[in-house]
């Protein structure tokens, strides 16, 4: 299978400036050397808690945020590969029809002063050689695809509920017929019953249009439902990457384990697995050398403080960044039978 997107050693550092002359005195490493590939037609999940850098990473891939280093290779329609990070502005704008994004907040993602029809037509307008007749046709098609009536085009965002707005945002992302869509927490702001509708819509769209998804979320149950493979991020780095079913059945990194243990499950259960984690993530500034997770890890040793673990293959293609991955006790069962 072809690789649609290859991220290599991507970094996003925010400079910290001080003094009258705003001299740079350090950097927040929001994304710090992340590499992964996404296959054509795959849904790749990116999970982690707030501040782990997952949204920054997603935006850096789209160059909504200029990366500090690394490359993002995108496989073009004609089969050639281009590096998104170094593309000049006009070429980048032309490429944007192939790479789209859906944001989390359905209330801030639509311009309140534009009708839905106008909002949907905007990205089409940026494509050369599409006339107003085809633009209208595409708007109609996009509305139908996400299950909204044609007359919605004349109405304004405030006339729609959160779930309907998110459908509109999805229609806007798909209207340029992209190949790759970044979904940045697209269902996190939605009520449970609406969330399921939108998840089903995303699955249908992918099947019909052969889309490749990068799905960013903090919600592991949703990630499991939608994704083929998943990467777990902690303070700007990937700590575990692998096939989703295997990871949920037998997480290898202590952080992944605690994330999975922490999910409240909608089944009353007598036995709760130990959380295996203490406290909260330290600020990204306070990480100095060694494993970033060691301050919260019950298995941390001197080795973890001395040397940062790198992602390594444990033999089945899944990657873990932990010195003790092989020697950790077996994972507890999460659900009381």
């Amino acid at each position: 299978m072809n690789t649609q997107l290859q991220v290599t050693d991507l970094r996003v550092h925010y400079p910290i400036r001080k003094g009258v002359f705003r001299r740079q005195v350090g950097a927040v490493r929001a994304v710090d050397g992340v590499s992964f590939g996404i296959a054509e037609g795959e849904t790749f999940g990116l999970v982690g808690e707030s501040g782990c850098g997952k949204s920054t990473l997603a935006r850096a891939i789209l160059r909504l945020q200029q990366p500090t280093g690394g490359t993002v290779q995108f496989r073009h329609r004609d089969g050639g590969e281009i590096d998104v990070t170094s593309l000049p502005a006009p070429a980048m704008r032309a490429l944007r029809r192939d790479i789209q994004i859906v944001f989390q907040d359905p209330y801030s993602s639509l311009n309140p002063r534009l009708s839905i029809g106008m909002t949907l037509a905007e990205p089409v307008r940026a494509i050369e050689g599409v006339g107003s007749r085809e633009r209208r046709a595409r708007v109609a098609e996009a509305l139908a695809a996400v299950g909204l009536p044609m007359e919605a085009a004349r109405r304004f965002p405030h006339e729609f509920s959160g779930g309907q707005r998110q459908r509109i945002a999805i229609a806007r992302a798909l209207i340029t017929r992209p190949r790759f869509v970044v979904l940045d927490e697209p269902v996190s702001a939605l009520d449970v019953s609406i969330r399921a509708q939108v998840l089903n819509l995303l699955v249908d769209m992918q099947r019909e249009r052969a889309l490749t998804y990068l799905f960013v979320s903090h919600d592991l149950s949703v990630v499991r439902y939608l994704c083929n493979r998943v990467a777990v991020m902690y303070l700007g780095r990937i700590v575990e990457l692998g096939e989703v079913d295997r990871m949920f059945a037998a997480p290898r990194h202590p952080y992944t384990r605690s994330l999975l243990a922490a999910i409240p499950r909608p089944q009353p259960r007598k036995i709760r697995p130990p959380l295996g984690v203490v406290g909260e993530p330290p600020g990204p500034l306070s990480v100095a050398g060694g494993c970033a997770f060691r301050s919260r890890c019950p298995h941390a040793t001197g080795h973890c403080a001395a040397e940062p673990p790198v992602l390594r293959d444990l033999g089945n293609g899944d990657l873990v960044a932990c010195h003790h991955a092989e020697t950790l006790p077996a994972t507890p069962r999460f659900v009381a039978a």
Binding site: R96, F103, D105, S109, L110, E122, R125
Partner: peptide, 22 residues
């Protein structure tokens, strides 16, 4: 910082039009 302005960049819409329309 509004997502709809971000969406303009993601949609390849020029800065001039973004400012004028959005």
């Amino acid at each position: 910082e509004k997502d709809y302005v971000m969406a303009c960049r993601a949609g390849g819409i020029s800065l001039g039009r973004t400012l004028l329309v959005h």
